[in-house]
C-alpha cells in the first residue's frame, strides 16, 4: 500500500528544481525569517510556513500570503543552514495554490502571473502596457492615474514602444508549449 501522501510530501514532490534538502530537515532556526526582506509583509514568516507544512496545516498554508510576498531574492537559500531551497519552495506553493485555485482572492500575484503567461503566449515577449490593466484596479483611481502618467512620460522618453513586439516563429513556440501540456489551446 502506498504511504499516505502528506501535504508536506505533496509539496516536496512539486519541487522539480529543488536541489536542496528535504523540507523535513528544517531545524526552525529562523535564519530565513531573519534574512527575508519582505517578512514584515507576510502573515506567516517563512520559518512558520515551513513548520505549518510539516504539521500538515494545508488550509492555513494555502491561504497564507507568505509565498506571494516572496521577492525571489534567494537570500534565505544561501543562508539556510539546513540547505533547504526555500525560494523554490515558495514557487512550488504559488503553483500549487494556483492549480488548486485556493489562493486568497485579494492577492494580485496570481492574476498578474496568469496575465503575464497569456501575454507571452500571444506575442512571445512581455510588454508592460498590456500588463497594466489586469492588475491596475487594485490601486484605484489614483493608482490608474499615476500609472498612466508614468506610462505616457515613459513613451515620451522613448522607453515604451506603443506596440508590442511579436517573435517571428510564434506558432512554433505555441506548438512547443502544447507538447509540454498537450491538452487545450494556450490562449
Amino acid at each position: 500500500m502506498a504511504a499516505k501522501l502528506t501535504f508536506s510530501k505533496e509539496i516536496a514532490n512539486l519541487l522539480y528544481a529543488m536541489h536542496g534538502n528535504p523540507i523535513k530537515d528544517c531545524i526552525q532556526c529562523g535564519t530565513c525569517s531573519g534574512t527575508c526582506p519582505a517578512v514584515e509583509f507576510m502573515d506567516h514568516s517563512p520559518r512558520e510556513l515551513i513548520a505549518m507544512i510539516g504539521a500538515n496545516l494545508k488550509d492555513e498554508v494555502l491561504h497564507s500570503n507568505t509565498y506571494w510576498s516572496c521577492a525571489s531574492c534567494y537570500y534565505c537559500n544561501v543562508r539556510c543552514p539546513a540547505g533547504i531551497d526555500i525560494a523554490d519552495l515558495m514557487y512550488a506553493l504559488k503553483r500549487y495554490s494556483m492549480w488548486k485555485d485556493q489562493y486568497k482572492k485579494d492577492l494580485i500575484g496570481p492574476k498578474f502571473s496568469e496575465s503575464f503567461v497569456k501575454m507571452i503566449m500571444r506575442t512571445g515577449r512581455s510588454f508592460e502596457p498590456v500588463l497594466a490593466p489586469s492588475y491596475i484596479f487594485k490601486y484605484g483611481t489614483r493608482g490608474i492615474i499615476q500609472e498612466a502618467q508614468t506610462a505616457s512620460a515613459l513613451v515620451l522618453k522613448g522607453r515604451l514602444p506603443l506596440l508590442p513586439k511579436k517573435i517571428k516563429r510564434l506558432e512554433n513556440l505555441k506548438r512547443m508549449v502544447r507538447r509540454i501540456i498537450p491538452i487545450g489551446e494556450p490562449s
Partner: peptide, 8 residues
C-alpha cells in the same frame, strides 16, 4: 535569550 539563528 533569543531563540533564533542570527541572519546578519
Amino acid at each position: 535569550f533569543i531563540r533564533g539563528k542570527v541572519a546578519e
